[in-house]
């Protein structure tokens, strides 16, 4: 592992560079193919509405994958992430237009642990609502 951020240089409260991730229907079709998750709630509006959703929603695992990029881009080596967990609290609703949805992710160091590890807490918001809860990563720094 070769994280580019030094443990000694971060403090509780250190903010990681925030990022925004656009999601369109095309993004979801592509993610479905790459991940093997072909649940129609992620691409078929009629089906999504029938099961009580407002529209097609993003794969929770897509949101989880996007959010951790704030941490892996910061740490440099993705293998610096030794633990990562989320709760899927609200769906990311993806309308069938050019814009789609936007997932805005921010993160900060919440605790300094032993063995040069830190806990990073993430916040992911789409359309003004938190879409992930209890979103935490443990990261080994240099």
């Amino acid at each position: 592992m070769a994280a580019k951020i030094a443990y000694d240089e971060v403090e509780v409260g250190t903010e990681l560079p925030a990022q925004s991730f656009p999601v369109t229907r095309a993004t979801l079709v592509r993610y479905a193919g790459a991940s093997g998750d072909f649940n129609p709630i992620h691409w078929n509006e009629k089906f999504a509405v029938e099961v009580g959703l407002p529209d097609v929603i993003a794969h929770g695992m897509f949101t989880m994958a996007a959010a951790i990029r704030v941490v892996t881009d910061w740490a440099g080596d993705p293998a610096a992430v030794v633990e990562y967990g989320v709760r899927f609290t609200k769906p990311v609703v993806v309308p069938n237009d050019e814009t789609g949805a936007l997932i805005e992710v921010s993160a900060k160091v919440a605790a300094k642990l032993d063995d040069r590890r830190v806990r990073v807490d993430l916040t992911a918001v789409s359309a003004g609502q938190k879409v992930l809860g209890m979103s935490r990563a443990v990261v080994t720094l240099a």
């Binding site: 929770g60 293998a79 030794v82 633990e83 967990g85 989320v86 209890m134």
Partner: peptide
């Protein structure tokens, strides 16, 4: 529906 997901890695 998927409620929570967590991973703990020994290596990538």
């Amino acid at each position: 529906v998927h409620g929570d997901q967590k991973f703990a890695y020994t290596r990538p």
